[in-house]
Simulated scan of single mutants.
Amino acid sequence: MKWFHTAAMSLSLLVISGCASITGNNDTKWLYPPMAVPLQAGLQQEVQIARLTQLLQRADLADDLRAEMFYKRGSYYDSVGLKDLARLDYDQSLSLNPEQPELFNLLGVYYTQVGEFDAAYDAFDSALELDPDNSYALRNRAVALYYGDRLHLAMEDITQHYEEDPSDPFRALWRYIIQSKQQPEQARAELLESYQHRDEQWGWLLVAISLNQVSEEQVFNAILQGTPDNTLLAQRLTEAYFYLAKRYQQEGDYAQALSLYKLVLSFNMFDYVEHRYALLELGRIYHTVREERKAEQQAAN
């Protein structure tokens, strides 16, 4: 695929990406991982938060309008990483207008992030009761069930989600991640079959990362060549480092996975699911390593 061709990087591209490389005869070796400038809260976001805060102090607002304002302010809080303030606003909005499936979906993602899985399931169930065709809520419930170790139910949801659009590489990826917990060989075979029927969507490069079909150098070059600005670079690297970290985690290389998940968090892409779940993954790795070391000490004694 043309995405994977290796080419020399210009000086300006290297400065923008914040990476360094050495070039051999056949490939590029990276001394430092490609980076983007971490995104910061914009003036517009801060102004909107301040404006909505002022408007919400008015006593003459109708409940439906107040609910909408809480929802909007919560969305701005969420976009700058203030997830607890966002949750409070979402709760306020739902107390005024409980028929908001998109808000239940957002709350479900929040509860998944913080490991409150029963609350997450309830939120996603509410979202799907209000909107049975909400594909995002179905996918997010599958992910919550996966992290909550309810793998059979997770597979039911993610399979339904995948079958709605098999051409979507992210659907294929999450089906693979969930299925790998119980059927790693079958999961890889099915993802490889999907990959062989790929189109030009960006996400298939992430599938290639997961399948180890391309080198990391090729991946980095493809991202750098296809990202004209820092925001898009931050988005692409957030996704790439997350799925690369998942691969290393599955291989048992926890040190590499930890480093990559930390890179995912560094770009401040707060509204990306990869950013949302990277911190959760870090906690799971720390727990796994701690339990392994405890078992080794007990065996040694």
Rank of each mutant, 00 (worst) to 15 (best):
M155G: 12
R175E: 04
V143D: 03
A172V: 05
N140M: 09
A142D: 01
M155S: 13
R141Q: 12
L151Y: 12
Y176H: 13
E163F: 08
H161P: 03
E163A: 02
M155E: 13
R150A: 13
R175L: 05
G148K: 10
D165G: 03
D165K: 09
Y176C: 02
T159H: 07
E163V: 01
Q160H: 10
T159P: 01
D165S: 08
D165P: 02
D168Q: 05
G148V: 13
L153E: 15
Y176Q: 01
H161G: 04
T159S: 15
E163N: 10
A172D: 01
P166H: 04
D149W: 11
A142L: 06
I158G: 06
P169I: 12
R171T: 03
A142Y: 03
Y146T: 07
R171I: 03
G148S: 14
W174I: 04
E164G: 05
A144F: 01
S167F: 08
L153D: 15
G148P: 08
R141W: 02
T159Q: 11
E156F: 02
A142E: 00
Y147S: 09
M155H: 12
Q160A: 15
D168V: 13
G148C: 12
D149R: 11
M155Y: 10
V143Y: 05
Y147A: 12
N140T: 11
Y162R: 04
V143T: 05
D149E: 12
D157I: 00
D165V: 06
I158T: 07
V143G: 02
A154N: 06
D157Y: 00
S167E: 08
A154D: 06
S167K: 07
Y147H: 14
N140W: 08
H152D: 15
E164D: 05
A172Q: 03
D168R: 05
M155P: 07
A144N: 00
P169M: 01
R141Y: 01
I158S: 10
M155C: 12
D165R: 08
A172P: 01
P166S: 01
W174T: 02
R175F: 08
M155I: 11
I177P: 01
